[in-house]
Amino acid sequence: MCEDCGCGLTGHEHDTESVQVMRGLMEDNDRLAQHNREHFDAHGALVVNLMSSPGAGKTRLLEATVDAMADWLSIAVIEGDLETENDAARLRAKGVPAHQITTGSACHLDAAMVHEALHHMDLDGIDLVFIENVGNLVCPASFDLGQHLNAVLLSIAEGDDKPAKYPVMFRAADLVVLSKCDLLHAIPDFDPDRARHALADLGLAVPVIETAAGRATALEPWLAWLDHALDTHRARLGLHPVSVRNEPAAAGA
């Protein structure tokens, strides 16, 4: 069979040429993602992309974050789901502008979807944008959206070897959040140290924090990470720091 075209003939000639290209297949997405990032920067907004399996508690974490921070800064949310407006509705109920992207059958958000969403969002005065990606530990890792930071959630019900099973996703993380840690006593199979070890095996030196979105005190490491990220981001853009989560005024002060 003909090596070039599989046409079934032998000994015939094609006018062929082989062209070397060496062009990245994510190049177009990455270019658009950079455009999105410049748009976010122009508005001074820090953008955090949340990724995890379905059901790891991304929306719940966002609800708790809004409760803790919305008095001190302006938050907006972009929600990605295959179907329904449910998650955006949950955030809107907290008074936060939330745009829902329904991807249909697409298993991830890409830069073009976020770009389209930005046409429907007013970022003036917004300090912090969360992108809640489609729940999926595989596909979203490959697509830059224009975010500044990635937070990857690993709920303790999922097993502490997830980083070893999904290295591409966890390698993309700037922060790993072990979520639902209020259930640790009920799930003795999950060992946070084993999860940390699996992350270290990926060559990662990113912070790993434990949260329980239902308990305000358990959110502190997450809120502290956001504070620090906001300060760093705003300093880079030459903006004043946002006074985040000001300590409540002492009684009688």
């Binding site: 070039d4 094609h14 062929t16 082989s18 290209v21 062009r23 990245g24 297949l25 490959s142």
Partner: peptide, 12 residues
């Protein structure tokens, strides 16, 4: 993740 080469038929 790169498009490395393309082999094509081109008259001439």
């Amino acid at each position: 993740l790169v498009l490395a080469r393309v082999a094509m038929e081109r008259p001439g």
